[in-house]
């Protein structure tokens, strides 16, 4: 038998060349350059100044850096449970025998396709203390008005509610797909074992939706650390820096104060924090016997 010889398709290199160029310019160079930047002070115009570890030293003494991480975690702590509950609730409703399912699905998905800027301008009105529709609605029911985005305690939760409203459509559909993939036989056999609806939900539905929950966790975490336009338009990071997000802080350092080195350092550390948070979440979900 003839020795098998691998045939290489040389034209492949031509096909992947654009990616190589793209990778070198927009991935490799920025990564290397960010490693250079974190050791420098630079205003982008005059020559770079080597500062050693000073950027990191500044970072650990910078209350706003920690504040922006706490803000993001606050956002995630509210946003993720809210998102999962609401999405799962509507997915269960849509999965039952109902008419007009496509109509409801289309409407629930609407905020997902619309730009975050539109959503934020809209919610700025809804959240307005004096003239906002939400507070007007509360007053109709005799509930005292809520200082949605003007109180340091309420502002981040308000951003999280808005983000949930915007994104939950995707997760409703994802959960719906997940629910439709669960075979009916599983429920039938557990029916025979005399399991209640609630027991079924926790023993069958939830565990089988685990992959979707992981997706929600990961995407929301990335989303939380990418938060920019919502606080930029809605609150400018206030009140009292309570909505200062990681990206907004990078933006301010780089483009208000022209500290490119420090902004790159922030980006570097935030990237590590994102990785860490996602790893912790994955471990937690895998270990948790209830999910």
């Amino acid at each position: 038998m003839k020795k098998y010889k691998v045939k290489y398709d040389r034209s492949a290199y031509l096909l992947v060349l654009p990616y190589i160029i793209f990778f070198l310019m927009f991935v490799a160079y920025p990564l290397v350059f960010s490693l250079v930047l974190v050791f420098h002070r630079w205003d982008i115009v005059t020559p770079m100044q080597w500062v050693g570890l000073k950027n990191f030293e500044r970072l650990i003494n910078d209350p706003l850096f920690f504040k922006s991480i706490i803000n993001t975690l606050t956002f995630l702590l509210i946003h993720i449970p809210l998102q999962i509950t609401v999405a799962l609730g509507f997915a269960l409703l849509l999965n039952s025998k109902i008419k007009f399912r496509p109509v409801f699905r289309t409407i629930y998905f609407l905020p997902v396709v619309v730009s975050g800027v539109v959503v934020t301008i809209l919610w700025q009105q809804l959240y307005s203390f004096d003239s906002g529709l939400l507070n007007k609605l509360l007053m109709v029911f005799g509930i005292p008005r809520i200082p949605w985005i003007v109180s340091p305690e309420m502002a981040m939760p308000s951003v999280a509610i808005m983000a949930t409203w915007k994104n939950v459509g995707i997760y409703i559909i994802m959960f719906l797909v997940g629910l439709q993939n669960i075979s009916a036989e599983l429920y039938e056999s557990s029916n025979m074992d005399g399991a209640s609806r609630v027991q079924q939900f926790f023993s069958i539905t939830l565990p089988l939706l685990n992959p979707t929950i992981v997706v929600v966790l990961v995407l929301s975490t990335i989303g939380g650390f990418s938060l920019f336009i919502e606080p930029y338009v809605l609150t400018g990071g206030g009140p009292m820096q309570s909505t200062l997000s990681a990206v907004l802080y990078i933006y301010n350092q780089a483009f208000y104060f022209n500290h490119m080195g420090y902004a790159a350092t922030l980006g570097f550390i935030f990237a590590i924090v994102i990785f860490a948070v996602i790893m912790i979440q994955k471990k937690a979900v895998e270990m948790d016997p209830t999910v």
């Binding site: 340091p152 206030g238 009140p239 009292m240 301010n252 208000y256």
Partner: peptide, 22 residues
């Protein structure tokens, strides 16, 4: 050269002390 940053810091102190009384 750093006046913007100084005003930003002042702005934060002003907010904490005057606007929110913290």
């Amino acid at each position: 050269p750093d006046l913007k940053e100084i005003f930003d810091a002042i702005s934060q102190e002003y907010e904490a002390s005057a606007v929110y009384g913290r």
